[in-house]
């Protein structure tokens, strides 16, 4: 097995060397493609982009968590007039690509007289499609709470609203915290579409840097690493939160 490990390591190192050589042969290791990463202005610009990404993602997450609860309540109610439209809304928002919703806010709404800022053109579609997914995650949590809990609460004389908000939902949330945090990764990924509406998030700022320095490979590599780090941090947090539940 040691032989296998050693040969695998050699093959992988050769592969890495091949990639490195490709960079060198294409002239991508030239100082002019990398030197601007030594300037603080570059990092403060990328940092502002990352901040734009995170403000949009945070707002979208807050809206999605709230609206998801509304959609869940609509979906669980016994009134058909409320339940069916709620189901239709959830299926519609969940089944449509976020990018398509962004295009609607960007291309279709302005001619119809509805003008949103670039921040909302990005944040609103991301919030809506996340809200529908969150509603389904909530529902999975609610269904996982043992039925006896609701029955016991009812027999104590609690109203339906009290049963839901004081007994069922708090327990449901504990089941689904890891899934909710994992959903945050998707929110961060979706905000990448900010450059479509020219909202100043990480990807948009990367495009500006590229226009200035003509350094496609280095800038996109650095941006990809930044996204991976942010999302990896969120995923790790969700795994840590997930552990004590099982």
């Amino acid at each position: 097995m040691r032989v296998a490990s050693a040969s695998a390591a050699i093959v992988l190192l050769l592969l890495a060397a091949g990639v490195g050589f490709r960079f060198h042969a294409a002239g991508q290791l030239d100082a002019r493609f990398w030197e601007f990463f030594a300037w603080p202005t570059t990092w403060s610009f990328l940092g502002r982009g990352l901040l734009g990404t995170l403000t949009s993602a945070a707002m979208a997450a807050v809206i999605a968590l709230t609206l998801g609860l509304v959609l869940l309540a609509g979906r669980l109610t016994r009134l058909r007039l409320v339940r069916w439209p709620s189901i239709a809304t959830i299926e519609f928002l969940r089944g449509t690509p976020t990018l398509l919703l962004i295009y609607v806010c960007f291309l279709v709404l302005p001619p119809a007289g509805i003008k949103l800022s670039t921040y909302w053109m990005l944040t609103l579609p991301v919030s809506l499609s996340t809200a529908a997914v969150v509603a389904e995650v909530y529902r999975a949590g609610v269904l996982a709470v043992p039925r006896g809990q609701a029955a016991a609460a009812r027999s104590l004389g609690l109203t339906e609203v009290q049963v839901f908000f004081l007994v069922v939902f708090p327990q449901a949330v504990r089941y689904i915290v890891p899934a909710l945090v994992a959903q945050l990764v998707i929110v961060v990924k979706d905000t990448t579409f900010g450059y479509v509406v020219t909202y100043g998030e990480l990807m948009e700022n990367a495009k500006v840097l590229i226009a200035n320095y003509h350094a496609l490979v280095p800038v996109y590599l650095v941006v990809a690493v930044l996204y991976c780090l942010v999302n990896y941090a969120i995923s790790s947090a969700s795994r840590r939160l997930g552990r004590p539940m099982h």
Binding site: T192, M203, Y220, A224, C228, S235
Partner: peptide, 8 residues
């Protein structure tokens, strides 16, 4: 798993 599709 973590890279946004559009960046890739």
């Amino acid at each position: 798993r973590n890279i946004p599709g559009v960046v890739l």
